[in-house]
């Protein structure tokens, strides 16, 4: 009976706290995006197993990627769980994806030359730790990250799938998109065979992809802080992933539209509530109007054609759907 009174007080206090916070169930996404123990869904696990059994994904490559992710989370603070899902969505962990194809996007994060230019001309602009990280971890110094494939004359002969850009393109994640597995690049190119500064090398690929995502995050965070808009730093990573896919301008335009049409409170809610953010980023209707104002047919000096705008919206929503369903348990997938 001696312990009953303190226990009662503690219970009472906990109950009080629960009532005051609206008895909100803790958000399971928070630890998930910081954990590399993904994918959670059985379907994804089955697909990974299938990829490994068919030697289209080597276990050693997967381990090397996950090791890098962990290192990056500690060094740059980029959530490894989210990054794993982003990379899986883009390339199914195939570090040589589109290596020999004419496709503009290549490697683990399916980055293009424009993204590499950010590291080659503007490495520390968003995060001053980036150069140091590249130097210490990748031992790259001032080398420029590139899509060089060194002297690998046997590559095409060994992995014919790499030449078929259509087969290696979207949808990247078959389990996530619910389609039958397609041919993907065969990982016969050894990591050590590639140039030290090649984006196709696993450490370079993972670090560059992570840094690019980190830059988008810092770009969004800086604007939100400047405008004094409240947000959840964890949920903001999902918006950073959307900016990774479609450019920060698309995300800024969508956020500006929400701010003007529905007010700051509503915008803060979207940036702070997981379910709302998930719905917001995966439904085309939320992105269509604001993005079309930049490229719609009514705009005489528009960005590009209407179809290009639609493609952009489609690529953002599809990537976000895949990331969400990779990170969240199947039951919670929209």
């Amino acid at each position: 009976m001696r312990f009953s009174l303190p226990a009662l007080i503690i219970s009472g206090l906990s109950l009080g706290i629960s009532v005051s916070t609206g008895c909100k169930e803790p958000d399971k996404t928070v630890p998930l995006i910081y954990s590399v123990k993904v994918p959670k869904s059985r379907k994804l696990n089955a697909e990974l197993e299938q990829l490994e059994q068919s030697h289209r994904l080597q276990s050693a490559d997967r381990r090397a990627i996950e090791q890098e992710l962990s290192f990056i989370q500690r060094g740059l603070g980029v959530p490894e769980g989210l990054l794993w899902c982003l990379i899986y969505t883009k390339s199914q962990l195939d570090h040589t994806k589109n290596m020999n194809s004419t496709s503009a996007t290549k490697g683990l994060g399916q980055l293009n030359e424009i993204a590499l230019a950010e590291f080659n001309h503007d490495r520390d602009f968003y995060d001053p730790r980036t150069s140091t990280f590249f130097k210490r971890h990748l031992r790259l110094g001032d080398s420029l990250v590139n899509f060089s494939i060194n002297d690998l004359p046997t590559l095409a002969a060994e992995s014919p799938a790499t030449l078929d850009s259509e087969n290696t393109r979207e949808p990247s994640s078959t389990a996530l998109s619910g389609q039958e597995p397609q041919n993907i690049t065969l990982n016969r190119v050894q990591n050590t065979e590639l140039n030290a500064d090649s984006y196709f090398r696993i450490p370079v690929g993972v670090v560059t992809t992570a840094s690019y995502l980190n830059n988008r995050y810092l770009q969004l965070r800086s604007a939100l802080d400047h405008l004094g808009i409240a947000y959840d730093p964890v949920i903001l990573w999902f918006f950073a992933a959307a900016a990774y896919e479609g450019g920060t301008r698309s995300v800024f335009t969508v956020l500006t539209h929400e701010l003007i049409s529905r007010g700051e409170k509503n915008l803060s809610h979207i940036l702070s509530d997981m379910e709302t953010a998930k719905t917001f980023l995966t439904q085309k209707e939320n992105l269509e109007y604001p993005i079309s104002t930049l490229s719609g047919p009514d705009s005489p000096r528009g960005l590009a054609s209407e179809s290009e705008s639609s493609k952009k919206i489609q690529s953002i929503t599809r990537t976000m759907e895949n990331i969400m369903s990779c990170l969240l348990p199947e039951a919670k997938v929209l």
Partner: peptide, 26 residues
């Protein structure tokens, strides 16, 4: 180099680093 930096910022801002579409606004 400064010009390339400017161009890189604009292109990354408008179209992102994972896009096949390389067109920027007029």
């Amino acid at each position: 180099l400064a010009y390339q930096q400017l161009e890189s910022r604009i292109r990354n801002y408008e179209i992102g680093g994972a896009s096949e579409n390389i067109k920027i606004s007029a």
